[in-house]
Amino acid sequence: MNTWEEYEKVQPTVLKMLKNSIMKDRLAHAYLFEGMRGTGKKEVSLLLAKSLFCTQPLGSYIPCNSCHNCKRIDNGNHPDLHMIEPDGLSIKKQQIQDLQEEFSKKGVESKRKVYIIVHADRMTANAANSLLKFLEEPSSETTAILLTEQVQQILPTILSRCQIVTFKPLSSDILIQKLVENGVNEKKAPVIAQLTNNLDEGLNLSHDEWFAQAQKIVLKLYEAMRKGSLEALVSLQGDWFFHFKEKNQVDQGLDLLLLILKDLLYIQLGKGHRVVHLEESQRLEQLALQTSVIRLANQMSAVLDAKRKLHANMNPQLLMEQLVLELQEGSSFV
């Protein structure tokens, strides 16, 4: 996905703003693209660069993707486009100084120059201060694009000199489509799309044997809880504690349990089309007959509370034992 039309579907507000700015010749001298990883910040920054350098634009703003300039940007070797990325864990002062020195020269092929700073939040204090001086003396032919997932880590003085553009997380429908286009089974994609907004992370999950096994263990635990507290505790000891060892793994296990409860709730409410466990739909239909909307709502609330306790550093093993017992209190299960 690298065309204007494709990103217009994914980030319509961002693309509309950039389109209007280009058409009215009102581009800001500095932009800060902020948002979650995988929302297209880097891709759109390169798309904007293409719009500025393209020699055969479609209309006045859509890059052709086939001219010499567009191809050089794709290959990372356009002489008037410079990209700065962290050197190790941070972006250092010397990198910004080298950029300033480069931009003190005339453009190789035109007056215009563009620079993109990836992970701008990782600039050292000295690098950030050097960039600030650069931003304070903008050239009408220079466009700066800063990318970050941690906007709160950017100096307020830098923020004040940039037009902030927020990239929204990918919608589940779009992510499902992209996952399927990249070879993920269409019955597995909906679950993955509920757990991440990031295509790369989604693809990694689709090939992760640990994740595939985790889904089976979570469903097995739910079924064991229906049979009684002893069965559930045996399932915890035999499967869960062995598989979900790290805090982030327990958190993901709770998310998977929550998705099962949500699917059962959708079936109870007559909204089966919203079920994401497509491979287990018949099994869930049977389980849904043996519970109620109120019970499911209470159980979902208990799982969300367990997630909060986990993030507050409660012992994961004790947390899961308490959760299993809480889910069975009163008439939680038939």
Results as ranks from 00 to 15, higher is better:
residue 224 A to Y: 00
residue 241 F to G: 09
residue 237 Q to S: 11
residue 227 K to F: 05
residue 249 Q to Y: 06
residue 239 D to H: 12
residue 216 K to Y: 04
residue 240 W to C: 10
residue 248 N to Q: 14
residue 244 F to Q: 03
residue 213 Q to V: 03
residue 219 L to M: 11
residue 220 K to P: 02
residue 214 A to C: 00
residue 238 G to A: 02
residue 222 Y to F: 15
residue 234 V to G: 11
residue 243 H to M: 06
residue 222 Y to V: 11
residue 250 V to E: 01
residue 247 K to L: 12
residue 231 E to R: 09
residue 250 V to F: 09
residue 235 S to W: 01
residue 217 I to N: 06
residue 234 V to Q: 15
residue 248 N to C: 08
residue 251 D to P: 00
residue 223 E to S: 08
residue 251 D to H: 10
residue 252 Q to E: 14
residue 221 L to W: 00
residue 250 V to C: 10
residue 235 S to M: 08
residue 251 D to T: 06
residue 221 L to E: 01
residue 243 H to I: 00
residue 224 A to T: 04
residue 251 D to M: 14
residue 212 A to Y: 04
residue 244 F to N: 09
residue 226 R to D: 10
residue 231 E to V: 02
residue 232 A to S: 00
residue 227 K to L: 07
residue 226 R to E: 13
residue 241 F to E: 12
residue 244 F to Y: 09
residue 247 K to H: 09
residue 249 Q to C: 04
residue 228 G to C: 07
residue 216 K to I: 06
residue 241 F to R: 06
residue 244 F to L: 04
residue 214 A to F: 02
residue 251 D to Q: 12
residue 219 L to R: 10
residue 228 G to Y: 03
residue 231 E to G: 01
residue 233 L to V: 10
residue 249 Q to K: 12
residue 228 G to T: 08
residue 229 S to G: 08
residue 247 K to E: 07
residue 212 A to E: 13
residue 251 D to I: 02
residue 227 K to T: 11
residue 234 V to S: 15
residue 229 S to T: 15
residue 236 L to A: 02
residue 238 G to E: 11
residue 241 F to L: 11
residue 218 V to Y: 03
residue 211 F to H: 14
residue 211 F to Q: 04
residue 215 Q to C: 10
residue 211 F to E: 00
residue 229 S to E: 14
residue 229 S to P: 05
residue 251 D to K: 14
residue 240 W to G: 03
residue 211 F to T: 03
residue 218 V to P: 00
residue 247 K to T: 15
residue 222 Y to N: 12
residue 217 I to A: 08
residue 231 E to N: 13
residue 239 D to Q: 14
residue 239 D to W: 09
residue 244 F to P: 11
residue 252 Q to N: 12
residue 235 S to R: 02
residue 241 F to A: 06
residue 243 H to C: 05
residue 230 L to C: 08
residue 224 A to M: 07
residue 252 Q to M: 14
residue 226 R to G: 12
residue 228 G to W: 11
residue 227 K to E: 09
residue 251 D to Y: 09
